[in-house]
């Protein structure tokens, strides 16, 4: 099966393009000029721009989502609330806002595997996962995840048995999806903090499972 799926993904030379140093420099200059113009016109301020960068580089990232997942693993009542009304349950832990206004959590089990995507653009739950990785926003994932999710998972090193039901969630509206991964075997005695450290970004997108720590 893996062989068949890999055959479905021919190389794409023009997407491998890398900028030359001169092209990168031109791009940097173009952005500097635009920022200067918008600053001088009073449209933006440097302080505000710096704050935005700091929020997305330091405050919002997959650690937030990992906390949500670990809480659901240790607290059954929280898990129920999370699956019933994710926006509200995530807010309990202090997370929410832009690109996470309407959250839905989908649960992976021994028989169901969920994967999140946005085929039209790059919709992604920023408050709990931060900004999306480049692969999530690029054509190979956005196009093939709809038609060949199992083949895409193989590229992430995850081969699913045919008996498992695959569900792809295409984020076409303002609903943002987070996968609640399966709690790995061998973590029975783990604290919530120890569990948080095991949860990966990819497992919350649904392109990976969480390995047993043993």
């Amino acid at each position: 099966m893996a062989e068949k799926h890999q055959h479905d993904a021919p190389p794409s030379p023009y997407l491998e393009k890398r900028r030359t140093a001169a092209e990168t420099e031109a791009l940097e200059e173009r952005v500097r000029r635009l920022e200067n113009l918008l600053t001088e016109k009073g449209i933006v301020s440097k302080k505000t721009l710096d704050r935005v960068v700091s929020i997305y580089e330091n405050d919002l990232g997959p650690l937030n989502g990992a906390k949500v997942v670990a809480r659901a693993w240790v607290d059954e009542a929280y898990r129920q609330r999370l699956l019933a009304d994710a926006t509200k349950a995530i807010k309990e832990l202090g997370f929410g806002g832009l690109q996470g206004e309407h959250m839905v959590v989908v649960e992976n089990t021994a028989t169901v595997h969920n994967i999140v995507a946005c085929t039209l653009c790059s919709c992604y739950p920023w408050p709990v996962l931060g900004l999306p990785p480049t692969w999530y926003k690029n054509p190979p994932y956005r196009s093939r995840i709809a038609i060949d999710p199992r083949g895409v998972l193989v590229e992430f090193g995850l081969e699913l048995d045919d008996s498992i039901e695959v569900r792809v969630w295409d984020s076409s509206a303002e609903i943002r999806y987070l996968v609640l991964p399966e709690r790995p075997q061998g973590t029975e005695g783990f604290s919530e903090e120890e569990l948080t450290a095991l949860v990966t970004r990819d497992s919350m997108i649904g392109v990976a499972r969480i390995n047993s720590p043993s």
Partner: peptide, 26 residues
């Protein structure tokens, strides 16, 4: 582009930073 199969394999970047340069931040 959902359903197209012409773009090649998905290539995740290991330990990808949030931004790949100052201009992306801006």
């Amino acid at each position: 582009m959902g359903g197209m199969t012409c773009f090649g394999a998905v290539k995740p970047e290991e330990d990808e930073p949030v931004f790949h340069g100052e201009w992306e931040r801006r």
